[in-house]
């Protein structure tokens, strides 16, 4: 299961999460959603710290964040 889960139907491609990600591991996807936007996508989940800054920055609450339990 992924740490970073996006509901592409909610993403409007505003790019705020991409800019704010401290690890710079988010980018616009190549594909278009049915709404016609390039959604945010994860480029390297191994670097994701589950800090949730992207999720909290998203005006459309499109992102959910999970963390590995230790």
């Amino acid at each position: 299961m992924s740490k970073w889960v996006i509901n592409e139907n909610l993403c409007k491609g505003c790019g705020i999460c991409i800019e704010r990600c401290p690890m710079k591991i988010l980018a616009f996807a190549e594909h278009l959603t049915p709404k016609g936007v390039h959604p945010s996508s994860m480029t390297d989940e191994s670097k994701c710290t589950s800090c949730a800054i992207c999720a909290k920055s998203c005006p459309d609450v499109a992102i959910q964040i999970y963390k590995e339990e230790k």
């Binding site: 299961m1 992102i63 959910q64 964040i65 999970y66 963390k67 590995e68």
Partner: peptide, 8 residues
Amino acid sequence: MKQVFGKT
């Protein structure tokens, strides 16, 4: 995996 951020 534990959810750390989800939609209320």
